[in-house]
């Protein structure tokens, strides 16, 4: 697969603060890539460097085969961006702003624009200063989705949107993927990434800590298991078991994926009345990456 974004060893400091400290990121063309990290991890800084708004201090950055700093205006024809903190022109209406941004990009599609305004239930006649945060974000999002950009950079686009709009957004993203567009979606809302992304990169304090498909990442982690057995057994000695809680015949625990097989053999020997297990949610992945070293 051809790459849309390839970043390695990216460094950016603001004064004494090292916002990015050797960050790596690879996004293939046509995938929806989740870019996860807690607030202040460096997500927005990375996106701004990908757009050539900020200049990288070290490392290599390639976007759609170009250098985002050198070829900024050229690349921007093929990229659409939704900032995390959308600032609009207070005395222009939402409709005017969408049109302006579309025309600057060159190929505005009136039909797509109208459909998106409808779907996101935006009132385009309101002055931008009267919009809420969520509505400001919708303006930027509609302008981005209505464009025919190859690459969408979305910085926490659903922050401030209600759940209904969030699900509309997910539908749109699925359509973008089918249309073959590449999306880099930064977020700290895990359910969002889990629902729409093919692959995920997790960063922390300006460094990449994990990257891969969701199943790749789950592979590294534990499965939560809850079971009611026929006869009580002692599982404390079993390797790979964590957070064991046993009350009579009821047990709940977490088990490393490598030892799942051993656990099931023990269960089978004891007899199982009921069993539930679920793969780790991204919340749990996150806790593992950011919780342990605190």
């Amino acid at each position: 697969m051809a790459t849309a974004i390839s970043v390695s060893g990216l460094v950016k400091s603001f004064g004494r603060t090292r916002a990015l400290d050797g960050l790596d990121l690879d996004v293939a063309r046509g995938e929806v890539h989740g870019f996860l990290g807690p607030n202040g991890a460096g997500k927005t800084t990375t996106l701004r460097i990908l757009l050539g708004l900020l200049r990288a201090q070290a490392g290599t950055v390639g976007v759609l085969g170009g250098d985002p700093w050198r070829d900024a205006a050229e690349l921007h024809r093929r990229i659409a961006y939704v900032p995390g903190d959308v600032t609009l022109w207070p005395n222009l209406t939402g409709g005017e702003i969408i049109d302006l941004l579309g025309r600057l990009r060159g190929r505005a599609d009136a039909g797509r624009r109208a459909a998106l305004v409808e779907r996101f239930e935006l009132d385009p006649t309101k002055k931008a200063r009267a919009y809420s945060t969520g509505n400001r974000q919708k303006v930027a999002l509609i302008a981005a989705l209505a464009s025919d950009a190859e690459l969408l950079l979305l910085d926490e686009p659903t922050l401030g949107m209600d759940p209904l709009m969030e699900s509309t957004f997910r539908d749109c993203l699925a359509e973008e993927r089918r249309a073959g567009r590449t999306v880099l979606l930064s977020s700290h809302i895990l359910a969002e990434v889990e629902a729409v992304c093919d692959r995920v990169t997790i960063i922390r304090a300006g460094r990449t800590v994990e990257t891969g498909t969701l199943s790749d990442l789950r592979h590294l982690t534990r499965t939560s298991v809850k079971a009611e057995l026929v006869i009580p057994i002692d599982l404390a000695g079993l390797p790979g078991v964590h957070d064991l809680r046993a009350e009579g015949t009821t047990v709940s625990l977490q088990i490393d994926a490598a030892h799942l097989d051993d656990l099931l053999k023990q269960f089978a020997a004891a007899g199982v009345r009921s069993l539930s297990s679920h793969p780790p949610t991204l919340e749990e992945l996150f806790l593992r990456h950011y919780g342990e070293r605190r």
Binding site: W89, N91, L92, T93, G95, E96, I97, I98, D99, L100, R103, L104, P124, T125, K126, K127, R129, A130
Partner: peptide, 23 residues
Amino acid sequence: ADREGPATAAPSLRSPLALAWRL
């Protein structure tokens, strides 16, 4: 109070200069 504005931009609003003039 704020009045409502146009739902679409005037045809001339298509460049940074046009935006600067508008503002």
